[in-house]
């Protein structure tokens, strides 16, 4: 299945069009905004990326990305209906507008030379809610990473559970967590990237169960959504409550990385934790990197790193 359709190219827009930031309201050249991977050049606001855009941002060769279960879709187990609108009809609208079959794209690819299993959730698809397809594809990706003994990177976002799948949606939290238990027991690395917004059941399962959690600046991260908290406590929350920076301050997130530095940071973390994908410039280094990857000693065989450069020093 092609993930970089005509739509994605069109959305980049011709030169000369203006983009209005939904945070600061300032206008910037569309092209400048797109070149900055949808970060506002005026205020630094990180606009949400689609899954194909995120894959293009992170992978060395996005076209070489091999997808896992690309055509998996829901069978509407509850026969859910609202005011005469069936769940499949509801989904069809999102499939149409996003060009996706479901809210997550998973597969294998390379990031700074390191082979990884990557899952990226797309907020455009029904608020990136977690149903059985999201749960199953995430689990298949965890299992694929285990099978191939590869690091796992999940770029998370979600508004919450997929109501239309009821308890089957809730059980995806159990399923993905159980798979990650085995993954961690196998001694493998999982890096979770929390993007805007990462909430509810996804945060309370696979998004948090990572060795390293990296968040994007300003991303909303938490369990209960702001609107519900405000309804219940009957007062406004501070503006920065549940932001990535707030969550880092409270010890829930390791690093907050601007988008422009994200790929480098992930590459560096992959290398530091597993020895994989050391920056490969010369053929000699490439060979060395390959031998480390194939080393039977596994992660312990990681090459010495320069300790004067703390991880995340660039963020």
């Amino acid at each position: 299945m092609k993930i970089f359709g005509r739509r994605d190219r069109e959305r980049r827009g011709p030169e000369g069009l203006w983009h209005t930031c939904r945070e600061c309201g300032e206008m910037a050249y569309e092209r400048e905004f797109e070149m900055a991977h949808k970060v506002c050049p005026k205020c630094g606001f990180h606009e949400r990326l689609s899954a194909p855009e995120r894959i293009a941002l992170l992978l060395d060769d996005p076209e070489a990305f091999v997808q896992i279960a690309p055509r998996l879709a829901t069978t509407d187990p509850l026969k859910f209906e609202r005011d005469g609108l069936t769940y499949p009809e509801h989904l069809a609208r999102y499939q149409q507008s996003s060009g996706l079959i479901e809210a997550v794209i998973c597969g294998k690819g390379r990031l700074d030379g390191a082979e990884i299993c990557l899952a990226v959730i797309d907020f455009r698809f029904l608020g990136a809610s977690m149903g059985a397809v999201v749960g199953e594809k995430i689990t298949l990706t965890v299992e694929a990473a285990m099978e191939a003994r590869l690091p796992l990177v999940i770029v998370n976002c979600s508004g919450g559970a997929r109501m239309q799948e009821g308890m089957l949606s809730l059980m995806q939290m159990a399923k993905t967590s159980a798979a990650l238990r085995r993954f961690h027991d196998a001694g493998l690395l999982y890096i979770s990237v929390m993007t805007d917004p990462t909430l509810a059941g996804v945060t309370a399962s696979f998004a948090s169960l990572a060795d390293v959690i990296v968040a994007e600046p300003g991303a909303t991260i938490g369990f209960t959504g702001r609107r519900l908290i405000e309804q219940i406590v009957k007062q406004k929350l501070p503006e920065d409550a549940q932001s990535a920076e707030f969550m880092q301050e409270h010890g829930m997130v390791d690093l907050v990385s601007p988008r422009r530095a994200l790929k480098d940071l992930l590459g560096r973390l992959l290398n530091l934790y597993t020895g994989a994908g050391a920056p490969v410039d010369s053929p000699a280094e490439e060979a060395e990197a390959a031998s480390v990857e194939e080393s039977p000693e596994g992660p312990e065989a990681a090459p010495k790193v320069d300790e004067s450069q703390p991880a995340g020093g660039q963020v």
Binding site: M173, A178, L180, T203, L209, H250, M252
Partner: peptide, 22 residues
Amino acid sequence: PVLEAEERGQAWAIADNLLEMA
């Protein structure tokens, strides 16, 4: 569903239990 619970990692606490019980 209160901010104090968020600050102390409500989602993380739940996720850890899922991992443990599994």
